[in-house]
C-alpha cells in the first residue's frame, strides 16, 4: 500500500465499512442481478456465434459452401494433411473431402442451427403459455385434457417421431423442421406455467383484480404473466437447447434439410466419409467445438437466469 492509494476517496469509504475495495465492487455487482458473470459469459458466447454469421457473411465468400471450392482434404493454416499439403489462407479452416470450405460452412451453418432452436422454442413457448394459462386459470374439463395431453406428449422422444416424419417426406426446409420440433417442446412450459398459475390464482392481487371486474384475459396476461417472466426465460432457453439437440440429431442421422448447410449435416458427411480414420479432424472437430460452445453458452445463460430470478442461488 502506498500513500497515494490511502488518500483516494473510495478507500476512505471502504475503511469506514471495514470492507476492502474488492468486496465493495462485488457487493455492487451483485446488487444488480443482471450483471451476473454466468449470464454475461453465456450471452457473449451466443453473440459470438451470431457475430460469426453476420460479420462472416460480409468478410468471407459464402459461395464456398459448394462442392469443389478448393483442393479437397486440405488442412487448416499450417497443418499438413496425409498427402503432405500444407493448409493456406485461402481456406483458413481447411476443406472437406469434396473441397467445401469449412469456414464458409460454419458461417452459414451455425446461425442456421441457432435459428431452428430459437424459432422452435418460441413457437413451443407460445403454445405453452396459452395452454398453461388456460389449464391453470379456467380449470375444469379443459384442464384435464391439457394435463393428460402434456403428460402423454412429454414421454415421447421428439427425435423418433421426427425421424419417421423425415424418412417419409424427404427434404424439408429449416422453418418446417423448426415447426415440427415445436410440436414437441410445448409440454414442459405448459406444465410449468400451469403449476405457477394454480399457485398464483388465489393470491391477493389476482383476487383484487377479479373483484374490480377485470376480464379473464386481462388477469391472465396483464396481471399474472409479468410475474412469470423469469420462469419463462429459463424455460425458453432450456427449450432452445432441446430443440437444437433434436435438430442436430436429425441432421447427424442424415435427415433434416438437404440443401442448406447445417453443422449437423457437416458432421454427418464427415462421419460418413471416414474423416475420423483419415485424420481429417478439422472437418468434424471444428463444427463439433462450435456446437459445444453454443450449448455451453445456452447452459450458462440458463444458470445465470436462475440466479437472477432466485436470489438464494447467488453466492456472495
Amino acid at each position: 500500500m502506498t500513500d497515494e492509494n490511502a488518500t483516494k476517496p473510495e478507500t476512505a469509504e471502504a475503511d469506514v465499512k471495514g470492507l476492502t475495495r474488492a468486496q465493495i465492487r462485488r457487493m455492487k455487482r451483485f446488487d444488480n442481478p443482471w450483471q451476473n458473470p454466468k449470464l454475461i459469459w453465456g450471452l457473449s458466447m451466443l453473440l459470438g456465434i451470431i457475430a460469426l454469421g453476420v460479420v462472416g457473411r460480409m468478410l468471407w465468400d459464402t459461395d464456398m459452401v459448394f462442392t469443389g471450392s478448393g483442393i479437397p482434404r486440405q488442412g487448416p493454416v499450417g497443418v499438413e494433411n496425409l498427402r503432405g499439403q500444407v493448409g493456406t489462407w485461402a481456406h483458413p479452416l481447411g476443406t472437406d473431402v469434396t473441397g467445401k470450405d469449412i469456414l464458409a460452412l460454419l458461417i452459414v451453418g451455425a446461425p442456421n442451427s441457432l435459428y431452428v432452436g430459437m424459432l422452435a422454442s418460441l413457437i413451443g413457448m407460445s403454445i405453452g403459455i396459452f395452454l398453461g394459462f388456460s389449464a391453470g386459470f379456467i380449470r375444469g374439463r379443459l384442464d384435464d385434457v391439457i394435463r393428460v395431453g402434456s403428460d402423454v406428449m412429454i414421454t415421447i422422444p421428439p427425435l423418433l417421431i421426427l425421424v419417421v416424419f423425415q424418412a417419409a417426406y424427404g427434404d424439408i426446409s429449416l422453418t418446417v423442421m423448426a415447426i415440427l420440433i415445436a410440436c414437441f417442446v410445448w409440454q414442459s412450459p405448459t406444465r410449468l406455467i400451469r403449476a405457477q398459475v394454480l399457485s398464483m390464482r388465489e393470491s391477493g392481487y389476482v383476487q383484487m383484480a377479479r373483484l374490480s371486474g377485470a376480464s379473464t384475459w386481462h388477469i391472465m396476461f396483464r396481471e399474472m404473466l409479468p410475474n412469470l417472466v423469469p420462469y419463462l426465460f429459463g424455460s425458453f432457453i432450456a427449450n432452445v437447447t432441446t430443440s437444437i439437440v433434436t435438430a442436430v440429431g436429425l441432421e447427424v442421422l442424415g435427415l433434416g434439410p438437404q440443401r442448406v448447410p447445417t453443422l449437423g449435416r457437416v458432421i454427418y458427411d464427415a462421419i460418413n466419409s471416414g474423416a475420423l480414420i483419415q485424420n481429417l479432424w478439422w472437418w468434424w472437430g471444428i463444427p463439433t467445438l462450435l456446437l459445444a460452445v453454443m450449448f455451453i453458452g445456452l447452459l450458462l445463460v440458463n444458470l445465470g437466469l436462475d440466479e437472477v430470478s432466485n436470489p438464494r442461488l447467488r453466492r456472495l
Binding site: 479432424w281 472437430g285 455451453i296
Partner: peptide
C-alpha cells in the same frame, strides 16, 4: 459445463 452437450459430440471427441 459439459452437461448441456449432446452425447454425440462428446462421443466424437472421445473417439478421436
Amino acid at each position: 459445463v459439459f452437461t448441456s452437450i449432446p452425447p454425440i459430440l462428446s462421443g466424437l471427441l472421445l473417439m478421436y
